[in-house]
């Protein structure tokens, strides 16, 4: 049974055509699979390994090297909270405490309803609006616990 089908499969073919060496498409392919399936499963790795003719262990090695790639699902809204200097010294630390107190959300975990997950990350290039978080592909800055709560409530719907 083929695992990567439909749009995903089409995108993979397109991506491979962009590069002089199709192997260069590995990161974009992994991004695509993660976007379409939520994470990169064993089945996906097997198929990518066949498509690109790269050993599975090497693909796993690549996935573990890059912090954005995951082999397990994340929450519907994945919160990446910056733990670097500008953010952490200007209110970021309080945001971490708030998420734990208010949502029971610790770094590396989910909320019970799988809506939110949290990871602490290095600088995300939003230091002028510290403290900042990235939720899926969007950035939010100048946060306070109250503002963060408003944002999460809106997303929760």
């Amino acid at each position: 049974m083929k695992f990567l089908t439909g749009e995903t499969e089409k995108t993979i073919k397109e991506l491979m055509g962009k590069y002089e060496d199709p192997r260069s498409a590995l990161l974009p392919i992994l991004h695509t699979v993660q976007r379409d399936y939520g994470y990169i499963s064993k089945e996906a790795i097997e198929e990518i390994s066949e498509i690109l003719d790269i050993p599975k262990v090497e693909i796993k090695g690549v996935i573990t090297f890059y912090s954005m790639l995951r082999e397990k699902p994340a929450g519907k809204y994945h919160i990446q909270l910056c733990r670097n200097v500008a953010c952490y010294l200007n209110g970021g630390k309080e945001l971490v405490e708030f998420l734990e107190k208010e949502y029971g959300l610790k770094p590396g975990t989910f909320t019970d309803n799988m809506k939110f997950s949290l990871s602490l990350v290095e600088c995300i290039g939003q230091c002028e609006i510290a403290p900042a978080v990235q939720i899926n592909d969007k950035f939010y800055g100048n946060l306070t616990p109250k503002k963060l709560k408003e944002i999460l409530s809106k997303l929760e719907g």
């Binding site: 260069s24 990161l27 974009p28 992994l30 890059y66 912090s67 790639l69 990350v121």
Partner: peptide, 10 residues
């Protein structure tokens, strides 16, 4: 020109 996205590694 091709835009290529990294995946989180300083």
């Amino acid at each position: 020109i091709v835009v290529h996205r990294g995946a989180g590694a300083y």
